[in-house]
Lab assay of single mutants.
Amino acid sequence: MSIQHFRVALIPFFAAFCLPVFAHPETLVKVKDAEDQLGARVGYIELDLNSGKILESFRPEERFPMMSTFKVLLCGAVLSRVDAGQEQLGRRIHYSQNDLVEYSPVTEKHLTDGMTVRELCSAAITMSDNTAANLLLTTIGGPKELTAFLHNMGDHVTRLDRWEPELNEAIPNDERDTTMPAAMATTLRKLLTGELLTLASRQQLIDWMEADKVAGPLLRSALPAGWFIADKSGAGERGSRGIIAALGPDGKPSRIVVIYTTGSQATMDERNRQIAEIGASLIKHW
C-alpha cells in the first residue's frame, strides 16, 4: 500500500482519535458579512469528516447552483462504474471539434489522439474542462443518470439537468442544476469515506481534487503551510461562485467545507476574496 493510499485508508482512524471539535460562531459572522459585502445569498456548511456531524452552517438547506462543483460527483459516478466493471479508466475516447464547448483548455489539445477516461476526469476536476465533463456525462448516460446515481446514494436534493455550459445559467428560483450545502457536503463525505467506492477509487477521487489547479484564489489562499486540501470550485452566471473541499491540518483532511453564493453584482475577484476570507476565519478558529 502506498503512503497516499495509507493516508486515505486511515482518515477515519486518525479522526477518531482527534480531540473533540467545537464550532466557532466567528466564522458564521464572516459568512454573514460576506453576504453584506456581496449583496447576495451565501450558503455555508462545515462537517466533521469522521462523524458527519454538522459543526457550523448557514442557509444549509437553500438551493444554490452547483456550477462546476458537480464534476466531482460526476467522476465519482464514473469511478463507481469502474468498480462495477462497467468502465475502464484506460479506455480512450475520441471526439471532434464539434464536441468542444466553451472553456476546454485540455480537451482542445487532444482532438487528434483523444483522451482516456482517467485523463478526462483529471481534466474535468483539476482544470474544470467543460468538454471533458460533457464527454464523461455521455459515458454514464447524461445528466439524468448522474441525478439517479445521487438518488441511489441517498441524495434526493442534488440534481443535474443540463450539460456544460448551460448548467451554469443560475436563474433565480430555478431548481435545475442545483444542490443544497448540506446535501453536497453529505454526498461528498460519502464519496470520500464511505463504502460506495473502493479504496482505490476513493484515493483516485481525492487525488484529482488535491491536484486542483484553478481554485488557488479561494480556500487555498488562506491555508497555512502543512495543511491538506482537496477541492473543486465552480463559477456561473449572475454572480455565482462555489467551492467544495476536504481539508485539515497535519497533512490530512478532517472536515468537509461547502460554500456557495449566487445573485451578486460583485466582480469575480471580490467573490473570490470573500470566500478566501471565510476560509481564513475557519482556519483561525479551527
Rank of each mutant, 00 (worst) to 15 (best):
A148N: 15
D83E: 10
E210V: 14
F14K: 02
K284Q: 13
H24N: 15
G234T: 00
E277S: 10
L160S: 11
L38W: 06
H5A: 08
D212R: 04
H24T: 15
L19P: 10
N168W: 03
Q265K: 15
D83A: 05
T178R: 02
G226A: 09
G39M: 10
A235H: 02
L38Y: 09
M115H: 03
P20K: 14
L188S: 06
A266S: 13
S104P: 02
D212T: 06
Q274R: 11
C75V: 13
R255Y: 02
V31Q: 01
Y44R: 00
G90A: 13
R176S: 09
P181L: 03
P249I: 06
N50A: 12
F228D: 03
R255W: 01
T27N: 05
G141D: 07
L100N: 03
E35Y: 02
A148I: 13
F6D: 05
H94W: 13
E210F: 10
F22G: 11
A123T: 05
P143Q: 06
I278T: 03
Y95W: 10
V101N: 07
R162S: 09
I229S: 03
L205N: 01
L191T: 06
K53Y: 13
I171R: 14
R202P: 01
S201N: 09
F58V: 08
K144P: 11
K284R: 14
G279D: 00
G239K: 02
G194F: 09
L47P: 00
I256V: 11
V214L: 07
E277R: 12
Q97N: 10
H94N: 13
D48E: 12
F58D: 02
G239R: 02
V257W: 02
L188K: 01
W163L: 11
A222V: 13
D99C: 06
F6C: 10
W227L: 01
A211Y: 08
W163C: 12
A15Q: 08
S264Y: 04
I243Q: 03
M127C: 09
F13G: 07
N272P: 01
A182P: 06
W163F: 15
G114K: 04
K71T: 00
A225C: 13
A215V: 04
F149H: 07
V257M: 05
I283N: 03
L135D: 01
P60E: 14
E119C: 04
H285E: 10
V117C: 04
A246M: 15
R189G: 12
R118K: 11
L282V: 13
L219P: 04
F64G: 00
A40C: 08
E237N: 14
P181N: 01
L47F: 06
R63S: 08
T112V: 13
Y260I: 08
L55P: 02
T138F: 10
T69K: 00
K109E: 14
D207I: 10
K30Y: 05
I206H: 08
M1Q: 01
A230T: 02
D129L: 00
L55A: 06
L247Q: 02
S57E: 13
K232W: 00
V117N: 04
P181I: 04
G154W: 04
N173Y: 12
R241L: 03
Y95N: 01
V157E: 12
G279F: 05
L55Q: 08
Y260R: 00
R271S: 09
M209Q: 02
D129C: 01
F228C: 07
A211N: 14
F149M: 11
A16M: 15
F70D: 01
R241Q: 04
K144Y: 13
E145F: 10
G251E: 11
D155H: 01
F64T: 01
L74C: 05
R255L: 05
T112D: 15
R81I: 06
T267S: 13
D48F: 03
R238Q: 12
I125T: 07
S68K: 00
G39E: 15
I140F: 06
G142W: 01
N98V: 12
F14G: 07
P105E: 06
S240L: 02
L89F: 08
E56N: 11
I125M: 11
E164V: 00
Q204R: 10
H24R: 13
A225Q: 15
I54S: 08
N168F: 03
A276Y: 10
A133C: 05
L55K: 08
L282W: 02
K30G: 05
G142P: 02
L192C: 08
P181G: 04
V214C: 06
I283Q: 07
A15C: 15
E87W: 05
T139Q: 13
A34I: 10
R59T: 02
A77V: 11
Q37K: 15
T193P: 01
V157G: 09
Q97H: 14
A280S: 14
L218G: 04
D161Q: 06
E270F: 12
K252L: 10
L89M: 11
R241Y: 02
I125A: 04
F13I: 11
G142M: 02
P20G: 05
K30Q: 09
I125E: 01
F228Y: 13
L74S: 03
V21W: 05
I275M: 11
E62V: 08
I259D: 00
L199H: 12
A23D: 05
A123L: 03
F70W: 08
L89K: 04
L19K: 15
F6W: 08
E108D: 11
R162H: 10
A182F: 15
Q204F: 07
Q88R: 12
P12E: 06
T179N: 00
D174N: 06
M115N: 03
G114H: 05
T126K: 07
G234L: 01
F64Y: 06
V21T: 10
G39W: 08
E61Y: 14
V257N: 01
Q203I: 11
V29C: 12
G85W: 06
